[in-house]
Nucleic acid binder design. Structure first.
Lengths: 224, 224
DNA sequence: CAGGTGTTTCGGTCGTCGCCGAAATATCGT
DNA sequence: ACGATATTTCGGCGACGACCGAAACACCTG
């Protein structure tokens, strides 16, 4: 049996209800402690420990120790993308009849690990491309000088960013099947939109709601 | 327990070694019979039947009956994208030391369900964007008139296409982490490149090799 | 209408893995 | 240093599911 990468192993990790619940909870982008994750999954702490150890061994989770707490978070946006992908596929078969009001809110706007996803995010991305704020410069997509200026206008300072993470990356949105803005710029934008109180996160959920101010201003953002 | 889509269920389906082997085999895009899939997975036909039935019930496979044979194929490119996604994630943890020559060929060019993926495909896509053959027309990416003309130049007739499948869709490439051309145009292009003998599929594998003619002409394709 | 091949159904066995109880370890507050 | 809380390790139980043998079913060929 010629073995490629162990795709079954990775899938099996996500294929357990408890672990899937934990991973889903972490899709919000916040780091959660082992105990919290245990409650989310509905298992005892010792069971959760086992699951978390395995997920960490597979490099799907990162752990940040802080005193007697251990905070776990997704290891990166590739993991988040995998989960989004699964959600899209699972939703297609399971939910057509059971699209509750909750799901509608998620479809409109939600957090994808550390950036915005959903209709709102896809719209923003489309406008950024139409603007020339994002373009292909031979080496794939990236923010143009014009784009950086546009972000600066709303108080997102990217000019001084020196991290090694890609500034701009397209992430396929699995409810919309179209790309939205990920990467550092995507994360910084979400932070700023929250600081401006244009969007507000729903506690304990991936959902994001637009404030009245957001409803008024977001559709006009990046139309200059 | 508030239930979203059954992400664990879908993941668990892929999380079995036998089923994963079958799905991987189907990534080549060709439909395979139940017996062939059983041999690929190294199980008896009756075991394979069970797996295939479950995958079909979850809408991950489609079946085409032809006489006493039943040919199974992936239900769509979303499924292929999920598998690519898993490959990328599994490879990141498992293979850094064991990148054999086989994997290098796959990284360069391979089949992703029905279209081309890998470095070659990402290059092509980048050139198409640079050209204005693909652009955002407000409603997401699509082929421009110019793009359709460019395809026509090499003998891919898209003008008369009337199917309901999106003509052009970006699919994230998980060895390159950048998009490549999927959708009907991607599939038609792969067909044409094979007909022109610029690329050739490797039997029983997802790998695609460039012929001498391909090495000479492919880098110049769509540079007009 | 036989004979043969590909595929499926049924029944039963066995291994794997998720789960918890009990107890050990680590860290904080006082 | 002591008790409290958070987390982990160990051991054993129980269930789900993957697997195969036997046999039935579907379809092509002659």
């Amino acid at each position: 049996m010629k073995e490629g990468p162990d795709i079954a192993g990775v899938a099996a990790l996500v294929g357990d209800a408890s672990r899937a619940a934990m991973l889903s909870a972490l899709m919000g982008g916040k780091a959660l402690s082992a105990g919290e994750l245990a409650r989310v999954a509905g298992v005892t702490p010792q069971t959760a420990t086992g699951h978390l150890a395995r997920l960490q061994a597979a490099a799907m989770l990162r752990v940040v120790c802080q005193g007697r707490h251990r905070y776990y978070e997704l290891a990166g946006s590739e993991v988040a993308a995998l989960l989004e992908n699964l959600l899209g596929l699972a939703g297609r078969i399971a939910s057509p009849p059971r699209t509750g009001p909750r799901d509608i809110a998620l479809k409109r706007a939600r957090v994808c690990y550390d950036h915005l996803a959903g209709e709102i995010a896809v719209d923003l991305y489309t406008r950024l491309r139409g603007n020339g704020a994002i373009a292909d410069l031979g080496t794939g997509e990236s923010l143009t000088a014009r784009g950086i200026a546009a972000f600066d206008d709303i108080g997102v300072g990217l000019a001084t960013y020196a991290g090694h993470r890609p500034l701009c990356r397209a992430c396929i949105d699995w409810s919309e099947r179209r790309p939205h803005l990920a990467g550092h710029a995507g994360a910084a934008l979400l932070d700023r939109l929250q600081a401006l109180d244009l969007v507000r996160r729903v506690a304990g959920s991936r959902a994001v709601i637009l404030t009245a101010k957001g409803e008024a201003h977001l559709p006009k953002l990046f139309t200059a």
